[in-house]
Amino acid sequence: MGKIMNDRNKKLLNVNDLHVSIDDKEILKGINLSVNLGEVHAIMGPNGSGKSTLANVLSGRPGYSITSGSIEYLGENINEELPEIRARKGIFLAFQYPVELPGVRTWQFLKSSVDAIRKENGEKELGVKEFDQLLEVHRNKVEMNPDLVKRSVNEGFSGGEKKRNEIMQLSLLNPTFALLDETDSGLDIDALRIVSNGVNEFKSESNAVLIVTHYQRILDYIKPDFVHVLVDGNIVKSGDGNLALELEEKGYEWIKESISSGN
């Protein structure tokens, strides 16, 4: 009895027969996915299969229409929720292509973000000194150059610096549900290690991580509990961490063939 109650309390995300279109073109064709606190999930799939679409739609990006199905987060249907409200409730998306914001200082951007989330939780804005101290802690975790926070957001950052900035924000904002979209792309081995360490340090029994990736490489560093294979808008296979290795070895063609042959 107690065990069942616990499991129910751990339920974070429930995606139910989700259909999503962009400009009347159906991209996601009935996704079912359930994520509990403390879990790491990986969504793998070939280019164009809808991985980013799924991550975007979970974080509330405008431009997608949910034609049927539901997204439940912490027991509530959030199909219509604004992205900033989702963010304040603990959903975080690390972007595949982090956006450059010319003229917007990284420091200001991060402080606005931290304050918005604190406000949601009934806490007051941080003072400049307090924020500086907090920022330094998280900046050090991803070994990010202190000069970068004085610059415009992501402007002139290298590919690796942008991705570190994303993980720094993950660490700073400490969300409940982290979506990582192709976080390893464009990273050399050192940066990949730093970024993965950031994620591993973040993950705990009170949050969950969903990694979206084309390649298996990052899963050597961040071990998933579950792997789902997305092909053409459908999750065609789910399994444990070993499925990722099998995919790496046999390629996505193997999955496609095994589906069409009915195995």
Partner: peptide, 27 residues
């Protein structure tokens, strides 16, 4: 659109995001 969504995905509302972007443009 991407700039605005990036900020909103960090909890910053539309009005505050727009203001940061306009000031950023002038900055």
């Amino acid at each position: 659109e991407d700039s605005v969504f990036y900020m909103r995905s960090r909890g910053i509302d539309l009005e505050a995001a727009s203001k940061l972007l306009i000031y950023g443009f002038a900055d």
